[in-house]
Structure formats: structure tokens, C-alpha cells
Amino acid sequence: MSLYELRNIRHGYRGRTVLIIDHLLIEEASMTALTGPNGAGKSTLLRLLALLESPVEGEVRLAGEVVGPESRQRRQRIGWVMQQPYLFHGSVVENVMLGLKFRKVKKRRQRALAVLSQLGFDADPGRAAEVLSGGQRQLVALARCLVLDPEILLLDEPFNHLDRRAARRLESMLARWVEEKGGTVIFSCHDEGRARRLAGSSIALQEGRLVPGQGVNVFWGRCVGDRFVTQKIEMILPAPAKGSQAMVAFNDIILSLQPFRSSIRNRFQGTVAGMAEVNGKIQVTVLAGEQFECLVTRSAIKEMGLTVGQPVWINFKSTAIKIM
């Protein structure tokens, strides 16, 4: 069943529209990634999902019910952590206890300390929250939200200030949370690789609109005759077209170590920037002017001896490009 359903959403501030979503469904007990560049509308969408704002037009449904900022009971079950969390004057543990205090829950300190240690917060919990580092602030805000035992977690760029170890720990904690508690996590993230690795589904936003194809291998630019020109590369199209987005499906990209002679007209040289396992296959990120993602089997990786940093070629037919 869909947990969230958004219909005909138009939202903005002071007359400027920043989010237009015709229809969007988000599944329950799953992890969903929100991807897109800065200013794509990810934080705005999260605020709508957190019931902190009402859309200017359209409706947000949560478990079938139309909801908004007035749905206080519903909101109590939603945890929301912003990109640059606001911490209150006082100690770390006082910050974590705040929501519990609002709800008049007992044994606040004990619960707050337990969540902090679960998140691997290693600084003194009695320390003033104002002097914490970016990563520590993020963890405190996350603890403040988790201690309330929410059913839905909305996290705005949660990995931004975390070091590698803390990010890994958070990743596995979130995965466990979804699996064991049946909770729903929706997080925004710049890193497509991480989004793919962690989330069962992803929502890609660009300039306030949903981008089809999950935002992977979607390029922005313009058509010039039978070429599609981005800021960095030029793709050859089968025929002149009109549109501002070009999309190449995952499976249509062929990875090779050498340029090969064939009817394939789009060839770009790049380097392997990352590899991550996705459903038994390996997702290879290649920087070839633009960032390309392609799926390769484990055995093919072995045969090619593919490693990060290695020069490779990206190949796809002009007919593989969809212009939108």
C-alpha cells in the first residue's frame, strides 16, 4: 500500500513556484531516495511530507487521509531532520530530550543517552550543543528525532557532514530500522551511487519537477540539429529533435576497455569513478564528461579487471537516447 500520495502539487514561496508534482506515490516500509541537484526542490518536498507546510495547490495524502500542518497527531509519528539542523541552547542530551519533554514522556535522559550511543555519538552528552561539529550536530538532530520512535523518517541530506565511518553506520542503522521495525525512510542525497545502494526506490527532481528514469543518466542541455549538447558533451541523435533532457537507459550503455569499431555512434572516454553492488549486479559510475551509470555483471568486472580510476569507454547507440 502507498503510504504517501501526492496529487496536483504546486508549491512555492512569495509567488515563486518551486515544486510541481502531478502524481507521486511513496511506498510504506521502504527506503526511498530523493535525488537531484541543489535547488531541485528536495527539501521543499520533504517539508511537505513532514506536514510542516501546506502545498499552495494540490493535496498530500498520508495513509489515504488528506493531511497538512494542522494534522498534529499524524505529525507526531513523523521524524524530520533538516540539512543544517537547528540545535537549542543547552547540552546535547537536553536537545535530544526536547521532543520527549514536549510529550511529557518519563525516563527522558535514559532514553536520550541510549539513542545517542546507538548512533555512535562519542562526545560528552553534557557538552553544549552550540560547539559541536557539523557531523555531530547531524547525529544529535537525528537522535532527537529517533528518540521519539517515529514511523516515518524524513532526512534531508543526512550524510552530508558525516565522515565515512559515521555514514556507513547510519546507512546500516537505517536499513535495519526499515527491515526490523517496518519503518519508512525518505532521504535526500546528492550521491546517486549511495541512493541506489541504499534505497529500494528513488525519486529524482530537477527544477522542482519529477524527472523520469530515476534521474540516472538523465542529462540537461539543448538540441542543435541532430546533436544534443550538454555543458560538457555532445551526443549524436538519430534525427533532429526538440527537448531539454536526454535520457539513456542503464541497459543500453556498453562499457569497454578499448574504443571499438561498430555502428555505435556515441562513444565517450572516461574513468571509473565508483562501483557498488545493486541486486547482485555491479553498478559502475563512469565520469566521461558527464556522469554515466551502467550495470555490469560481477563476472564481466572480473574478466575486464575493472578497478576504480581505470580508463574506460562508454558506448551507446543514438537510438538509445530519449529526448524529453
Binding site: L52, P85, L148
Partner: peptide, 12 residues
């Protein structure tokens, strides 16, 4: 961010 945080934490 203060108001939003208070709302999200369920302050009356």
C-alpha cells in the same frame, strides 16, 4: 529553522 524544528518535535 527554529519554528520548523519546534513544530516537527510536536511543541504545543
Amino acid at each position: 529553522r527554529l519554528s520548523l524544528t519546534l513544530d516537527s518535535l510536536g511543541a504545543n
